[in-house]
Computed example of a mutant assay.
Amino acid sequence: MDQLTLDVPNVTTFGPGVFRLLPRLRRLRMLSAIQSLDEEEFELCPDLREVLFHAKLQKIRPGTFRHNKALSYLDLVGNNLTHLPDGLIAGNPLLETLSLTENGIRTISAGAFRNASNLQQLILSRNNLRTLEEGVLDDAELLTYFHASANEITSLPPAIFAKTMLLIEIDLHLNNLTSLPKDIFAHTTNLKELRLGDNQLKFLEPELFRHNQRLITLELSGNALETIHGDVFSGLQSLQYLYLADNRLATVPAEVFKPIAGLLQLFLSGNLLQELPGDALAGCSQLESFFVNNNQLKSLPGRLFTNNTKLSSVSLEDNSLRGVPVELFTGTPSLKQMWLGRNPWDCTSCEVAAMSAWLTSHDIDIGDVVPQCSGPGPQPGRDIRQVTSTHCLKDSGQ
């Protein structure tokens, strides 16, 4: 037998030598209530390659899998581990994937991943980690995916990724990070996806991502960013998706998005923005979606979308807009969706009348929330698409 699947949720212990009769075992999948494994448990299973062991393990000894030199996949998700000891996988030179999600891991020895020369995926999400030791990843030079989301990590060593230069994806969202060392990503030049959302970041170092020229997705939503430096995104010429929603940004520098020429989607929802620079999006000629809903915008510059000919979706919902310049829509031939609801539209304004005409003539999808007129005038609650130039009493600037 080379494969064994056991679904025995009530089994709490193994009989002695239970796996000694399976010398050809290559794949083991087990769901049980086992709390511990003997160090010699898999001694006579030299060909064991894949282990999925969902149980109630309280601890894992460094030598548990030392006889299984062929082991390439180890899944210990959903156990009760609290500590990863030194030399945990030192005897498994072919191990490629180690998944430890949903344990109670609080600490990891600096040498836990020693000799992890072939490790490519390390998943530590949904544990209780507060920190990572300097050098803990140094032996994992082939690591491409590092996930440590949903922990309690407050800080990271400056050189934590210094040796993992092949990393493609780093996921650290849902932690308690308050800052990031200046050169923490200096060596991760192959990085394509970086998730730092739902932390407590208040500030980002200038040119923090300057070495990450292949980065495609940058997630920074749900932090406490109040300001961002004008060159914080320098070097990100491959970036396509930028998430800055649900921060505390009151302004954005006019030049901050200019280095991101290939940007496709920009999320600024849920901030404190009252205005946007007229050329804020001038460098983003490939932009397709722009979300700036749930802010405090009172006006928009007429030239905001001048260079965004591929723009197809814009969300302006939940702001304080009473009108927008007529020229805002010039040069947006691809625009199909524009969400405008929950703004105090002044339907006596010629700007709103012009916008109404444009919305209906271009058959724009306005979403589920109908934009309505507010006061003054006799039209509160009226769908702004019903407003015509005959209702226009004044220009917005008068």
Rank of each mutant, 00 (worst) to 15 (best):
G104T: 12
Y73A: 07
L321Y: 03
T154S: 05
L172A: 04
R303H: 04
D183K: 12
R27M: 10
N68D: 10
C373M: 06
I366C: 07
K182C: 08
Q265P: 08
N151K: 00
T348D: 13
G91V: 12
T348K: 07
Q213W: 08
H173K: 11
N293R: 02
T82P: 01
F290N: 08
L316R: 06
E288A: 05
L297V: 02
T64N: 09
V51K: 07
N115L: 06
L249P: 11
E169K: 03
S361R: 12
H391R: 14
Y243F: 10
L172K: 03
R248I: 06
L304G: 01
L191Q: 11
N319G: 06
G78R: 13
N307M: 02
R210S: 15
I89Q: 14
N176W: 03
L76V: 09
I34W: 01
D47Q: 11
S334R: 01
L239T: 03
G197K: 06
R29C: 03
L180T: 05
I60D: 12
N307G: 06
V136P: 02
S313M: 00
L71D: 13
K69I: 02
P46A: 15
G78D: 13
L340C: 13
K310G: 12
G262D: 12
H187E: 15
P181R: 12
E226H: 04
A110E: 05
E327I: 06
R66I: 04
K336H: 07
T330M: 01
R385N: 06
I260Q: 15
F203E: 13
G341A: 05
L21C: 11
N307R: 02
N295P: 07
R342C: 04
L340T: 13
P93R: 15
T217P: 00
L297R: 03
A112W: 04
A70Y: 10
V369I: 15
N10D: 15
P301I: 01
S312V: 01
L37T: 05
A159N: 13
L316N: 10
L31K: 09
L208F: 02
N293E: 08
S155D: 04
R66N: 05
F14P: 00
I366A: 03
N80V: 04
T178W: 00
K336T: 11
S221K: 04
L239S: 10
Q35P: 00
D75R: 09
I60A: 13
D7P: 00
F291I: 14
L300P: 12
L321Q: 04
G63M: 15
